[in-house]
Computed example of a mutant assay.
Amino acid sequence: MRRAWILLPLALVAACSSPAAPVASSSSSPTPSTTVPASTTTPSPTTATTTTTATTAAPPPVVVLDPGHNGGNAAHPAQINAPVPDGAGGTKPCNTTGTATDAGYPEHAFTWDVALRTRDLLTAAGVQVVLSRTDDAGVGPCVDARGALGGQVGAAAFVGIHGDGAAAGRRGFHVITSSLDPAGAAVAAASNGLAVDLRDALSAVEPVSDYIGTDGLDRRADLAGLNLSTVPAVYVECGNMRNATDAAWMTSPDGRQAVAQQLAAGVLAFLGR
């Protein structure tokens, strides 16, 4: 798939992992005893009633991270070429093998590594993360199943992570939303807001795409994972893996950590955290 980037200061990671605030202990001063003379009329005491209201902490927001493709896809063509609904009235293949750098670093490995790094950062910030796949050695899941996952787990956001395979002379990242607005105007508006937050975060560490979209944002009707989502959803093309500069950045562990930090920053901005 395709591209994106941004550097979240390391200080943010530490800040995100702050433990829950300790419960403050309370103490009360003893009430001194009072002797009432026998000849004094004592008024009826007033009974004070204290009502304690129990508060329940809100559950953490859920975010789906969808690392594109999978390590076993190439060895199972029958499964990944099987048609599935595309959310636009047609079908498309279950999945694909993805692209790779000229040196052979595959997109599925890039997306898996970035997803794990992003998961750890979001988890430290109090976000519950659900991954669309459990490892980088399996097959699929199909794009329609990925798109449905956000609604199934009650996610606040769905973020597909990809690397693009465009012409070698082009570079930069872009963020994609569905142009079909399949879940209605409110979800479409939220998806656009998520895209902007991620674009703004990633643009701190790498340039926006110089070959597709406008200002790092693009809208498409052919991506089943977005068309079939009932929650705010985007795909992030984290860079062009066929471009030498982007490829060097995406192959580097430091580059992937920078991408993960900015993806986390964009998601947290969207969640208002």
Rank of each mutant, 00 (worst) to 15 (best):
V13F: 07
E107S: 08
A269W: 03
L228C: 10
P43I: 11
L7W: 08
A54Y: 08
A20D: 15
C94D: 05
T245V: 11
S28E: 15
E237W: 04
S28K: 13
G216P: 10
D222W: 14
T55E: 07
A269I: 05
L180H: 02
A11V: 12
P30W: 12
V187E: 03
A168P: 04
A167D: 15
A82Q: 14
R119Y: 04
A258M: 06
G216Q: 08
A247P: 01
L7P: 00
A148N: 04
V64R: 11
A189I: 00
P60I: 01
L228F: 06
L202V: 04
V267A: 09
T111M: 10
A137F: 07
T214A: 12
T245M: 04
V231G: 02
S132K: 04
D200F: 02
N73V: 08
A258E: 02
V130I: 11
A264D: 01
T91G: 05
A15K: 07
S229A: 15
R3P: 07
A14I: 13
I6P: 15
A125W: 02
P45E: 11
G72P: 11
P77W: 04
S44M: 08
D113P: 00
S26Q: 10
G147L: 07
L217V: 00
P61R: 01
S17N: 01
L228Y: 04
T47R: 12
P77M: 08
G68T: 12
L194R: 14
L268T: 09
V139F: 09
P67S: 10
A15R: 13
R256I: 00
Y235M: 13
S28V: 13
G89D: 05
I212Y: 03
D218A: 13
A11I: 11
V114T: 06
D197Q: 15
G225Q: 08
V187T: 15
D210Q: 02
L198Q: 09
